[in-house]
Design a protein around this nucleic acid. Structure first.
Lengths: 112, 112
DNA sequence: GGCTATCATTTCGCCGTCGAAACGACAAGC
DNA sequence: GCTTGTCGTTTCGACGGCGAAATGATAGCC
């Protein structure tokens, strides 16, 4: 896939996303959501902050939002009660699967 | 490209975007930027609002931002002075080319 | 010329997010 | 058991975006 086609795909997805649930999430929240579901667990606040190169308060705020939407869940780490483990939810899994299908469809339309 | 790979690509791009200029734009601003550069001209406020299914004031506000960053330019339509034509800039073209290259690179890494 | 429609913008109050700093809870070292 | 360090959260003031409604300018129609 060359850069031109990749950009065209990004265009389609960006426009499409405005009309769906993803419009409720900003860029950071989206990136965190994807990191939680596609990245290597376990996920902690500091870990997400480091991987995404953003501040810890920003991660905390984004998790508030994701938790309110039932896209993520918090659980204190029993082996270190200062740490918080960020976990996936069923609703989040379903949402991301649907989103993946939409992206895949757009990619197919774009001839990728 | 199947849905799974498309989602993995989206993940990489979303994370990567946080560290670059695209982080300064929200989802609507990003979609409008891409529509201006990849969509069929001419672009007017009402046209963009219709294509992206958002309100005209939202388009106006987003254009303020894009203009401030020199990613877009306004020009009144001489044939209908109520209309505004949205035009591309050199800086925007360069920015999008660089961004396309980064996406393309990530796609290659992801084996697409 | 006057009436109405259309285009884009501005205004209004409201809400969410921002970075930086302060904070409370827990852990680790001595 | 104190001190120091780490983890996550909350607070603070400021800023920007939101939808809905009002506004100004231009066009079209009779």
């Amino acid at each position: 896939m060359d850069a031109r086609k990749a950009l065209a795909l990004w265009h389609r997805v960006a426009v499409e996303s405005l009309s769906h649930d993803l419009a409720e999430l900003n860029q950071r929240q989206t990136a965190i959501l994807l990191e939680i579901y596609l990245g290597e667990p376990p996920h902690t606040v500091r870990g997400l902050a480091r991987r995404l190169a953003i501040s810890k308060p920003a991660v905390t705020r984004a998790l508030h939002r994701l938790e309110a939407l039932d896209y993520a869940r918090r659980k204190v780490d029993e082996s270190d009660k200062r740490s918080v483990l960020v976990q996936r939810t069923v609703k989040g899994s379903v949402f991301l699967r649907d989103f993946a299908d939409r992206i895949g469809g757009l990619a197919k339309e774009a001839g990728l």
